[in-house]
Design a protein around this nucleic acid. Structure first.
Length: 213
DNA sequence: GACCAGGCACATC
DNA sequence: GATGTGCATGGT
């Protein structure tokens, strides 16, 4: 996984996840599902401005009110429910404190998170890595696209197959796991759209520049 | 106007 | 088990 070093030297440290607290990171993880991060920032800004960005306040808020605040993030009705589901889990199991999650085993936490309706593999792993500091690799659409186009992995592998492949081949510590996913997103944003729009995109699309297989 | 963005659950075949 | 669809805003 020499690609990690290349990405790091090209893009520099990404300092993820953007957010002031583990709870804010978890909220962002739900809000960013299939959504541009800029829209998520606007939604989080609304929550902060309304002074409700904490488990208890959000828990006590009607779904419709929450949906209005997170409107910029898209899918607002759906995401209001999903946020509520996560917050209910956090309050019921961990007294509303993400810090209380940290003592638990990663695999157990992961299974618990996946039980929450609205939290799938990527959201669960994002929360584990960026809010709970657990060493786990986050696979996203860019990861799949980039590694497929570069011929590093077969097409059509599912989330866990890709995660297993990278975990097996990438030797890094917690901070490296943190950076690697963020760097892949940086690369994907620049060069790896589903359909290339211009010559430059097409040329760079394969991302081979960064990958030596 | 089309395309895209740091997915997920659910219906249907 | 694979494939399709709804969810929705805002930027390019």
């Amino acid at each position: 996984m020499e690609i990690y070093k290349k990405l790091l030297s090209h893009f520099g440290p990404q300092n993820w996840w953007p957010g002031d607290s583990p709870f804010e990171i978890a909220v962002g993880a739900v809000l960013t599902q299939n959504t541009n991060w800029g829209n998520v920032e606007a939604a989080i800004k609304n929550l902060k401005h309304a002074r409700v960005l904490c488990p208890k306040k959000l828990h006590d808020m009607p779904n419709d009110d929450l949906a209005k605040l997170i409107k910029p993030a898209g899918y607002f009705n759906l995401k209001a429910k999903r946020l509520k589901n996560f917050i209910n889990y956090l309050i019921n199991f961990y007294d509303g404190k993400i810090e209380n999650m940290l003592v638990k085993d990663t695999e157990i936490l992961r299974r618990e998170l996946l039980e929450v309706n609205g939290i799938g593999p990527e959201t669960a792993d994002s929360i584990l890595l960026y809010a709970c500091n657990k060493k786990i690799f986050v696979v996203d659409a860019y990861t799949k696209r980039i590694f497929e186009r570069a011929g590093v992995i077969d097409k059509g592998l599912d989330y866990y197959e890709i995660q297993e492949f990278i975990t097996k081949n990438f030797k890094g510590d917690l901070q490296d796991y943190n950076e690697f996913h963020a760097l892949i997103v940086a690369l994907g944003k620049d060069f790896c759209r589903p359909k290339p729009r211009c010559e430059k995109c097409a040329l760079n699309n394969i991302c081979l520049f960064f990958i030596d297989k």
